[in-house]
Design a protein around this nucleic acid. Structure first.
Lengths: 185, 185
DNA sequence: TCACATCTAGACCAAACGGTCTAGTGGCGT
DNA sequence: ACGCCACTAGACCGTTTGGTCTAGATGTGA
């Protein structure tokens, strides 16, 4: 993650996403984020008047969009539904391995840590639904009927979230890699 | 949750388990726990010299054992593997609904919030493995070969953890209730 | 009834928290 | 050259954090 040539705002979002993914919302201090991003407090509250929660929302959005990019990339080169989904899982598994096998799903880590905040939960739901919608659209495009496609996309997300948790506990991406086998058995 | 006749130590564990499940490790303050359990600080550090992390470990253990009890109960009255697993999911879904559709898996909520602590992660792994082992034993006892049984038990846990997350996001236990359909399709 | 261990009780502490505020800096349009 | 505005910079604030410590209550066996 090169934060070199990025603006202060961009650095803030990137660093937040990374730290929040690993430690959760309440697990990171604002000062940690500021120090890692090399941004003074004044800048934070200039770009994100809402403070920490504002920043977390932006970080979750960014992470959500990156996931959509992964889905797009995976299906662009895919010859079949199975192919596309397998690629998604392998890409995520690889990222998981790269980042010390320590990071959780961005949405879960960032948003569920603060469930007392309705806005957070709504955002999580919305991002999840975007992922499901994106996946479903590709699958429908490839010929599956919409209802089955929605179910498949939801099934994939459930497996992915569950596998992500197991992967963290076991410090191994195996569970993520074995998702396609579970889904298309 | 009647904390009436319990000892201070028991109240501490019960209240911690409940609060941690909802807010995560860093999301609850020691003072919140103490106030809810009506236990002074001195008592905490008498019973749990290790402080908050010590308490969280005990809470996770207690929650882990309760899950084993659910598995036991479900298989005791089950006529088939499918039956037992369906009962497990329904029991968990019911509990989820009762507790405001807000609580996550105890192990995930309690332990993953503090992944910088190796001891925490190990404990999470150990509890997960206990659940998998318990389930697998029942399934083997019912005639399935051990390898397939292990895979089935792991598959169930992955689906359960994933569904739990989705359930929180959507404030609905549907995803948990539909696990058997996904597993035995 | 006295000694002792267990447990309760909460005042107290340094550190860290998220957030506010004022001052200053840099670059761009005119 | 100047004024303006986006942004940087960090001192500072009240609150809350997890944790320590001393004092006292309670029960139990000799």
């Amino acid at each position: 993650m090169t934060t070199e040539e990025l603006s202060a705002k961009e650095r803030l979002v990137a660093v937040s996403a990374a730290l929040l993914r690993r430690h959760g919302y309440h697990g990171v201090g604002l000062n940690d984020i500021l120090a890692a991003a090399k941004v003074p407090k004044g800048s934070l509250y200039h770009h994100f008047p809402g403070g920490k929660s504002d920043l977390a929302m932006a970080a979750a959005d960014a992470a959500g969009k990156e996931m959509v990019r992964i889905i797009d990339d995976s299906f662009q080169t895919a010859g079949s539904v199975e192919d596309g989904i397998t690629t998604i899982c392998h890409k995520i598994a690889k990222l998981f391995d790269i980042f010390d096998r320590a990071d959780g799903c961005p949405v879960t880590s960032v948003l569920f840590d603060a469930p007392e905040n309705t806005e957070f939960r709504e955002k999580a739901k919305q991002i999840f639904d975007t992922w499901i919608g994106t996946t479903r659209d590709y699958v429908v495009e490839m010929g599956m009927d919409p209802d089955r496609a929605t179910d498949l996309a939801e099934h994939l997300l459930v497996l992915l979230e569950g596998a992500w948790i197991m992967a963290r506990a076991r410090q191994s991406s195996d569970m993520i890699r074995s998702i396609p086998a579970r889904l298309f058995r």
